[in-house]
């Protein structure tokens, strides 16, 4: 099967159109002098301008950036049969507070990680499950390959869009890297409860 999507521990066809704003012309501002998040200098990235310019694709099901959804809610609701939202790993969790609807009305919520070494995605998974009580499909997007899957699954993610050019079939095996884990997670007791 020609797919890069792993869900519930198997390869599944991907019928979701993932909308990624083209921000290649935007300068990435770095932190300086004060504590703000990586790539956040108090200004949003990508900018509202970039988001405004996004042309919504022809598709049945889309996953759009949360900020794009907030900007174009009516248009998205009208145009698509189903829609999900995604955030950047540098987004604040507070962003979800701007939603008028329950987060559980979205069948899929994604977190995008630009660089594999960016481990914020794991803590965001924990927060989206724990603080926002999100119950549906939590998806890892972006620079995602085999070596993150075991951790991502334990941080609350249940689907993974493997980066293009990387063997998704091999990546699937990453979910089985370990038979046991010492520490507990939101949905798993620590190993000591078995000992």
């Amino acid at each position: 099967m020609d797919t890069q999507l792993i869900k519930n521990k198997e390869l599944v066809p991907n019928d979701w159109f993932w909308v990624v704003p083209d921000n290649s012309n935007e300068e990435v501002k770095k932190q300086a002098g004060k504590v703000v998040q990586f790539k956040l200098t108090g200004e949003d990235f990508p900018s509202d301008g970039t988001l405004h310019n996004v042309i919504l694709p022809e598709a049945e099901k889309v996953i759009v950036p949360l900020r794009l959804y907030l900007l174009k809610t009516d248009e998205i609701k009208k145009k698509y049969k189903e829609y999900g939202i995604w955030i950047y790993s540098h987004d604040e969790l507070d962003l979800f507070n701007h939603l008028k609807e329950d987060i559980n009305s979205f069948p899929v919520v994604g977190v995008y990680v630009e660089k594999f070494a960016d481990g914020r995605i794991y803590s965001l998974g924990n927060l989206i499950r724990r603080k926002l009580s999100y119950k549906n499909d939590l998806r890892a997007l972006g620079d995602v390959f085999k070596d993150q899957l075991f951790y991502l699954a334990r941080s609350g993610f249940d689907s993974f869009l493997i980066k293009e050019g990387y063997d998704a079939k091999k990546a699937l095996l990453g979910l089985e890297d370990f038979s046991y884990s010492y520490q507990g997670t939101l949905n798993q007791m620590p190993l000591w409860s078995e000992r």
Binding site: Y122, S123, F150, Y182, T185
Partner: peptide
Amino acid sequence: RQWSTFHPEFALLP
């Protein structure tokens, strides 16, 4: 040691 070994959230800290 056990708790920190392969802690799923903290493999790729800053």
